[in-house]
Design a protein around this nucleic acid. Structure first.
Lengths: 249, 249
DNA sequence: TATCCTGTTTGATCTGCATCAAGGCCGGGC
DNA sequence: GCCCGGCCTTGATGCAGATCAAACAGGATA
């Protein structure tokens, strides 16, 4: 995989929703640590559809999504694909202590990532406990999300799966762009095929079930991507979720 | 849920495969920290079939499995169940920073757990970075296992699912009881129904596919539980796994 | 020994989703 | 304007696994 040369940003600079700075460091660490992190930081950008890294490739960095969406997928030899992670702004990728990527990482929209070389980042973790504590919290959240997802994959019907995915995206959208109340409106960031890879379905089934939810009035749909959810509780009900706050995605 | 009063073990004492002591502490911490952990430690035992804790219940401890097997399961209102975690000796349960259980935890065999009250354990984490680093490693391993499991749930056939589960159990068994070579022999620790909950199948399908693997000579089966695997690579092939070391369960 | 109970196997049938196939929509290049 | 290629929808058909139902095995109890 040929990569453009990373851009080293040597001074303090805001990087939007970058997790490392905003959550792990800023809130708790002193300015020396923040400065060290900033000096290690560089950005990489990708166009929609580009592969960030292939499973099995050497991976000498860790990163945080600044803007855009990326996916983690696993592929079997015969081509069957399953998405195993959805990376939204502020999510972390990469794993201290492992030198090769375990999954394909792909940009589904234009993507900006804030990266740190792995070795100095690992050194920093060893000397700065707040960072590994914050990483532990984030990893536990991801594990919870993965387990919710396992229930979806193992036991939900196609209709419930689609409704669940829409609920996840709607909830994320609300938390990023809070509104007082009223309908939730968003554009689907995934193609039908990507939704299918997420849900363990085929793209035809996704298409049929999206149409069915529209026909039944659970969602409104303009064009192929623009979704309006008037009754979020109804959506949750169709998703088969207990109507609590659930879903720590 | 009525619990027997925990037994406080005030002095250093071996606890077999207890993760906290052996992996997180012994190898890296000084004896003061080890002593503090030992003073916090107590044991709880459960009989096969007993529920350790229900989802939503207050959970004021974290624990490590010493012996026996436990499962984490999620249940939908209508009774559909999906196992989302399988806890084997040395596995860790509970989550610093959360006060209620997110899953049902059930002992599938007689079970001994080594517990720590959550509050003092959290305090210890804050003051002892090695522990949270070790927890981070373990959580990342669990996340990898969950993602492998997602591929299984979303994309594998019933036959592949069964073979995958047998491979996981066989591999665990080999790593616990190493042998030079030759057939891998073990007893299934799960009922057909538990296997079904693990794999997102019904117990009838599990039964049929186990019989099919026996008929095809992929496994030998004496009685309902006693399994012999003569050709592990063949089993992996049927499981649809790339034949690398895979599966960090 | 008979009887019960739990876990399991096996058979018959049904159905939800995959698969195969054909068009439709729309934006971009010429 | 036209055509082309991605993405999406819709229809027809098939099949893997669910569901419903019955019987079996083996250990515990009496």
């Amino acid at each position: 995989m040929a990569l453009r040369e990373p851009i080293i940003i040597p001074h303090l600079q805001d990087c939007g929703s970058c997790t490392i700075r905003h959550r792990a460091v800023c809130a708790r660490c002193d300015s020396d640590e923040l400065l060290r992190l900033e000096q290690m930081k560089y950005y990489r950008s990708f166009e929609a559809g580009q592969t960030v890294i292939w499973s099995g490739d050497r991976m000498d960095f860790v990163a945080s999504v600044v803007s855009g969406i990326a996916t983690l997928t696993q592929t079997m030899e015969d081509g069957r694909r399953q998405m195993v992670g959805l990376l939204l702004p502020s999510d972390f990728v990469g794993r201290p202590g492992r030198s090769t990527a375990a999954y394909d990482v792909t940009a589904t929209t234009d993507l900006l990532m804030c990266c740190f070389r792995k070795k100095p980042f690992e050194d920093l973790i060893l000397s700065t406990p707040h960072i590994s504590q914050r990483l532990l919290e984030m990893t536990l959240d991801e594990l919870d999300a993965a387990r919710e997802w396992m229930l979806l994959l193992g036991r939900k019907t196609a209709r419930e799966k689609i409704a669940s995915l829409l609920a996840i995206i709607a909830r994320r959208d609300v938390s990023l762009n809070p509104r007082k109340s009223g309908p939730i409106v968003f554009d689907l960031p995934l193609t039908r095929e990507e939704m299918a890879d997420y849900l363990g379905l085929t793209l035809e089934t996704v298409s049929r079930q999206v149409s069915a939810l529209k026909r039944d009035g659970v969602i409104l749909l303009e064009g192929k991507r623009h979704v309006t959810v008037n009754d979020f509780d109804r959506l949750l009900e169709v998703a088969g979720d207990d109507s609590d706050g659930g879903y720590p995605v």
